[in-house]
Computed example of a mutant assay.
Amino acid sequence: MAQAEIIITPVGNKAELGAFVDLAYRLGRSDPNWVPPLRSEAMELVTRGKNPFFDHADVQFFLARRAGAVAGRISAHIDHLAAAMDPAQGMGPGCGNWGLLEAEDEAVARALIARAEDWLREQGMKRVLAPLSMSVWEEPGQLTKGFDHPPTVMMGHQPERYQHYIEAMAYTPAKLLRTYDLDITKPFPPLIQRIVESGLRNEKIRIRKVDKSKFDAEAAIILHILNDAWSDNWGFVPFTDREIGYAGKKFKPIVREDLIMIAEYEGAPVAFMMTLPDLNEPLKAVNGKLFPFGWAKLLWWLNRPRGKTIRVPLMGVLKKYQSSRLASQLAFMMIEDIRNSAVRNYGFTRGEIGWILDDNQGMVAIADAIGSAVNKEYTIYEKAL
């Protein structure tokens, strides 16, 4: 029996945008390792006027229907800040993206990807990097290793079959992003302990926790270091002022002062390490719904985070120090302070570091030195249009 025709249409109203969001919950619920986000958060991500990504991006959402029923979705987008970057850093002029792919089967996925490519061509794009859902700062890449366990907060989880769908459409890997798993209950190797102890004796170095009562000022310090430290990295796109404020609003409820460190050298902030309790653990328990009882569970957890895992999503050292021994010393000192706080104050047992670019030799060396191991890998693909 022949399959019904697949019809791809742009999302044109609020009801269709709701159907776009809801599809992920229907297709994801059969995967035991998928973590449903709060639906309100998922809606905010794709809503113009709420997500500041739209301030500097052209975005089009598409739905696939078969026999009248929604069978897939995709976003196509052009980030104008990314398009202004040096092409050697991965993006650059003429480069567009697609993301937020969900599909019942390969036929639907192929039709959606082809439609996203057509839209990008219509906008004058010559190349595509994908998947990005939607910014490189949100959930970049297709999961290609680590399907057997849930993602941590702010990381994606896509079915393995999507990888095969993408590669079957002539996409080739452009960059690998890796996360590293670490048993934080164990002390670091003796060499790392000696490096940390040496730093503690250095009067020019101060490692301090953030002061949440000065949240905006501390966030500004961290974002200044981040924009400088990451500015030469592959895929880097600078944060706008609105994105800084938006990210601060999102992070504030789960920020714990003793899990985020700022390193000062000769009295000036030069490095930071941000660590977040894994919000995905309680989110999985509430199944993406705050009502009727999810809000109480989440509020209890936010008041006193407990669980297994913390994640280090971001760290950075000012560029002028990155080639010096000081950079790794500061990193080890911050990691050690956070490790001790996470175990002593919250009972966490596992840390996840990343994502880290596969060719970021400095960060890979730090991850290796403390005994962590790759547990997930995400691939960003490219294709000429």
Rank of each mutant, 00 (worst) to 15 (best):
A2N: 12
Q3S: 12
I8Q: 06
N13E: 11
L17S: 10
G18N: 15
F20V: 11
G28V: 00
D31C: 05
D31A: 06
P32Y: 05
N33Y: 13
W34I: 10
T47K: 05
G49Q: 06
F54R: 03
A67Y: 10
V70Y: 05
R73I: 09
I74K: 01
H80W: 10
M85G: 09
P87V: 09
G90Y: 07
G90E: 01
G90H: 08
G92K: 10
P93E: 05
G99A: 06
L100A: 02
E102I: 01
R110D: 08
A114H: 09
D118P: 00
D118W: 09
D118L: 13
W119D: 00
R127Q: 12
R127L: 11
M134I: 05
Q142W: 01
G146L: 09
V153M: 14
G156Y: 05
G156S: 14
Q163A: 13
E167F: 04
Y171V: 01
A174W: 00
Y180I: 00
D181K: 09
D181F: 13
K186L: 14
P190A: 13
E203N: 11
K214S: 12
F215E: 06
A219M: 15
L226H: 14
N233R: 02
F239K: 04
T240R: 05
E243R: 11
Y246P: 00
Y246H: 15
A268C: 04
P269S: 11
P269A: 11
T275Q: 01
D278P: 05
E281I: 09
E281C: 07
L283T: 02
K297Y: 05
V317L: 10
Y321W: 14
L326G: 07
A327S: 15
L330R: 04
M333C: 05
V343P: 07
Y346K: 10
R350G: 03
D359R: 11
V364Y: 01
I366K: 02
A369P: 01
A369H: 06
Y378S: 02
K383S: 04
